[in-house]
Deep mutational scan, measured.
Amino acid sequence: GPREVTMKKGDILTLLNSTNKDWWKVEVNDRQGFVPAAYVKKLDSGTGKELVLALYDYQ
């Protein structure tokens, strides 16, 4: 199956793709996968990378 990404509340993840309104593709610890968009919030990183903050645990 697809590689699952797990996250804990407060984690910072790299946002790869947010074109789908329900599932965003993120990368964390060299793993890529989809997380519910409602579970993360975009951060203003000030760099080229888009980052998101995990609002809830997800696994």
Rank of each mutant, 00 (worst) to 15 (best):
A54D: 00
L55F: 03
W24C: 04
L13T: 01
K21A: 12
A38W: 12
Y39I: 10
E50A: 11
N17L: 07
K9F: 05
K21N: 10
K8L: 07
P36A: 04
E4V: 14
Q59N: 14
L51C: 07
A54C: 08
G46N: 14
D22C: 15
D57I: 04
K41T: 11
L15C: 04
F34K: 03
V5C: 06
V52A: 08
A54G: 03
F34R: 03
L51P: 01
S18Y: 06
Q59I: 12
K42F: 08
P36T: 04
T47V: 11
E50M: 13
G33C: 12
G10E: 02
K41P: 03
L43D: 02
E27K: 07
I12K: 05
V52D: 00
D11R: 01
D44G: 14
G46W: 09
N20I: 05
L16W: 02
E27W: 09
T19V: 09
L51D: 03
K25S: 07
V5H: 04
N29E: 10
E4F: 15
A38E: 11
G48T: 10
K8M: 08
V26K: 00
Q32T: 13
K49V: 14
P2N: 13
A54T: 03
L51I: 09
W24I: 04
T14R: 10
D11L: 03
S45E: 09
K9P: 05
L16S: 02
D30L: 07
T6C: 14
Q32F: 09
F34Y: 14
L53T: 06
Y56D: 07
G48D: 13
E50K: 10
K8G: 04
V35Y: 01
G33R: 05
V52F: 05
G1H: 13
K41F: 06
D11I: 03
L13Q: 00
D11F: 04
N17I: 06
W24S: 01
Y56N: 09
V28I: 15
L55K: 04
L53Y: 08
Y56Q: 13
K42A: 07
V52I: 06
V35F: 02
L16R: 02
N17H: 06
E50H: 10
E50T: 12
N17T: 06
G1N: 12
L51S: 07
G10K: 02
G1C: 15
G1Y: 13
D57A: 06
A37F: 03
N29I: 05
V52Y: 07
P36K: 04
K42S: 06
V40L: 15
A37H: 03
N17S: 13
T19P: 03
K49S: 11
D44A: 12
R31D: 06
L53D: 00
Q32V: 15
M7N: 00
K21P: 14
K42T: 07
V40Y: 01
K9V: 10
V28F: 15
E27N: 05
L53I: 15
E50W: 09
E4R: 15
D57V: 02
D11E: 07
L51Y: 11
Q32E: 10
D30H: 10
Y58K: 01
K21M: 08
T19Q: 10
W24P: 00
V26R: 00
K41H: 08
T14I: 15
I12M: 05
R3Q: 14
K42C: 08
L51R: 08
A37R: 08
K25Q: 12
K25F: 15
G10W: 03
D30R: 07
R3W: 15
K49H: 11
L13K: 00
V35I: 08
G1A: 12
L13A: 07
K42H: 07
R31H: 13
K9A: 11
K25R: 10
D22I: 13
W24D: 00
Y39H: 08
D44L: 11
E50I: 13
S18H: 08
K49F: 10
Y56S: 08
G1R: 13
D22H: 15
A37Q: 04
D11M: 11
S45V: 12
G48Q: 09
L55A: 02
E27D: 05
A38H: 13
E4N: 14
K42I: 13
K42G: 04
V40I: 06
V40R: 00
M7S: 01
T47P: 12
T14D: 04
D11S: 05
L55M: 08
D44R: 10
Y58R: 00
S18M: 09
S18L: 04
P36E: 03
Q32W: 15
K21V: 08
D57E: 05
Y39E: 03
F34W: 15
E4K: 14
T47R: 10
L16A: 02
R31P: 01
G1L: 12
L15T: 01
E50Y: 08
A54P: 01
D44N: 11
K49Q: 12
D11C: 06
Y58C: 02
P36D: 03
K8A: 06
Y56V: 14
A37G: 03
R3F: 15
A38T: 10
A54I: 05
N20S: 09
L51H: 06
E4I: 14
G48Y: 07
L55S: 01
D57K: 03
A37Y: 02
T19R: 10
T47Y: 11
K42R: 11
G48K: 08
V5Q: 04
V5Y: 07
L13C: 07
V35L: 03
D11A: 05
E27A: 10
L51Q: 11
G10L: 02
A37V: 05
V52C: 09
V5P: 04
Q32M: 10
G46K: 11
D22P: 01
D22S: 10
W23M: 04
A37W: 02
Q32P: 09
Q32N: 07
I12L: 07
S45W: 10
E4Y: 15
W23L: 04
I12E: 03
S18K: 07
W23G: 00
K49L: 12
N29R: 08
L53F: 06
G33E: 07
K9E: 06
W24N: 00
P2M: 14
Y58A: 02
F34A: 02
M7R: 00
L55E: 04
R3N: 14
D44K: 12
L55W: 02
A38V: 08
P2D: 11
V35S: 01
T14W: 09
L53R: 07
Y58H: 03
K8C: 10
W23Q: 02
A38F: 09
P2Q: 14
A54S: 04
A38M: 09
